[in-house]
């Protein structure tokens, strides 16, 4: 057992876990943050993507101990109160989900993509960059639309801040 200290969605936490605990298990089983999903558990599907120090990583392929000292943001941490994050709002408005299983990971990856490209995105780039996130419902069209829509909204909301 080890104590892992990290910041999750802005809150400092210390969690006693077995050394073999994965980051996704710490989030879901110890902190009850079940918005982050486990799909394939083999780092292919992207349902478990969270941000670690601002970078989108697959939380099923990290030990909790590797996140010690880091700042983690999950899908539960991106809305401001009742106001959805622009990426969440764009997924809703563009019907970028059906069953919703992949959505938390899609949204966390998509936010990272927009940050990396400074909002300068086109359809081909979004499709290529989403290769680590698998959706079995939508056929991706509306997800891609949502990301492009959100890229514009995030630029606007950042400019407003």
């Amino acid at each position: 057992m080890s104590t892992v200290k990290l910041t999750v969605n802005g809150k400092a936490v210390a969690v006693d876990v077995e050394d073999r605990t994965l980051l996704v298990q710490l989030l879901r089983d110890h902190l009850n943050l079940t918005g982050t999903h486990v799909g394939c558990d083999t780092s292919q599907c992207g349902a478990c993507v969270v941000h670690m120090d601002g970078k989108a990583v697959k939380s099923c392929t990290m030990l909790a101990g590797q996140a010690d000292g880091a700042s983690i943001t999950t899908i539960e941490g991106i809305a401001k109160g009742d106001e959805l994050h622009p990426m969440q709002a764009a997924f809703r408005d563009n019907h970028g989900l059906q069953c919703g299983y992949c959505t938390p990971g899609m949204i966390m990856s998509a936010i990272d993509i927009v940050h990396r490209y400074g909002g300068q995105l086109d359809e081909a780039t979004v499709r290529a960059e989403l290769e680590g996130n698998i959706c079995r419902c939508t056929g991706y069209h509306n997800i891609v639309k949502a990301v492009l829509d959100a890229a514009g909204r995030m630029k606007v909301s950042q400019a407003a801040e």
Binding site: D112, E129, G132
Partner: peptide, 9 residues
Amino acid sequence: LGDPAVRYR
């Protein structure tokens, strides 16, 4: 190589 999340790690 890999995908964006894998490339970060």
